[in-house]
């Protein structure tokens, strides 16, 4: 693997400060997608900021009848959580239909949302890919594209988002709560990607 620096974020504010001051840094939580992409030379962060220890691991009912899921809740814990099993079996089943138990034990909820496409050409750094290198072209449109999208494509990209969990969250009209240097805001799930 390429060399990179490593730092641990102490809290959410510290994580935001660290990422805002270093454009070459990336957050790491479960690592299941990012480490893989680094090994394939698709990602090359100079520094990883470890957010896996942040206290964002709760799954709680909200006053308005919803459920607030922490970004660091592992996929397995979410799928097997009594509240999710009882009230959102669609979400539980979608999570368990993807990856393997080992990966689901590692992968975080936030990371699941932010994982990258599995398009063969996104992974193959010897080929053009607009998603990996904007403006370089799309190899998938005239390539091996059986795993790519049929609906909702553009002339620039026909990649799909690989997450089963995200399909369920979109169907359930979830809201994504984000925090950045400018403060906190919410994004409708369908508008997030």
């Amino acid at each position: 693997m390429i060399p990179f620096q490593y730092a641990r974020a102490n809290d959410v504010a510290d994580a935001i400060k660290q990422i805002a001051t270093d454009p070459s840094a990336k957050f790491i939580a479960g690592g299941t997608n990012l480490i893989d992409l680094i090994k394939y030379d698709v990602e090359g962060p100079a520094r990883l900021i470890d957010i896996s220890h942040l206290p964002l691991r709760s799954v709680e009912p909200t006053a308005t009848g919803g459920i607030l899921i922490g970004a660091m809740v592992p996929n397995t814990d979410l799928a097997y959580h009594p509240l999710i099993e009882e009230r959102y079996p669609l979400l539980a089943r979608a999570i368990l239909s993807g990856a393997s138990q080992q990966l689901r034990n590692m992968a975080s909820t936030g990371g699941n949302l932010l994982q990258r496409t599995r398009c063969f050409y996104f992974y193959d750094t010897a080929t053009p890919c607009n998603k990996r290198q904007p403006g370089s072209g799309c190899s998938a449109i005239d390539g091996v594209n059986r795993i790519n999208a049929i609906l909702g494509t553009s002339e620039a990209c026909i990649a799909t988002h690989p997450s089963d969990m995200c399909v369920a969250l979109a169907a359930l009209e979830a809201t994504v709560h984000v925090t950045g240097p400018a403060g906190a805001r919410t994004i409708a799930f369908a508008d997030f990607h």
């Binding site: 790491i28 690592g31 893989d36 080992q102």
Partner: peptide, 26 residues
């Protein structure tokens, strides 16, 4: 070495994970 085969499976705090996609420092 990409989390697909499971040969590297170990238990971390009692849970099975792919050690090939885990950074030791974490």
């Amino acid at each position: 070495d990409h989390g697909q085969c499971g040969a590297c499976t170990v238990l971390v705090d009692g849970r099975r994970i792919n050690s090939c996609l885990t950074l030791a420092v974490m």
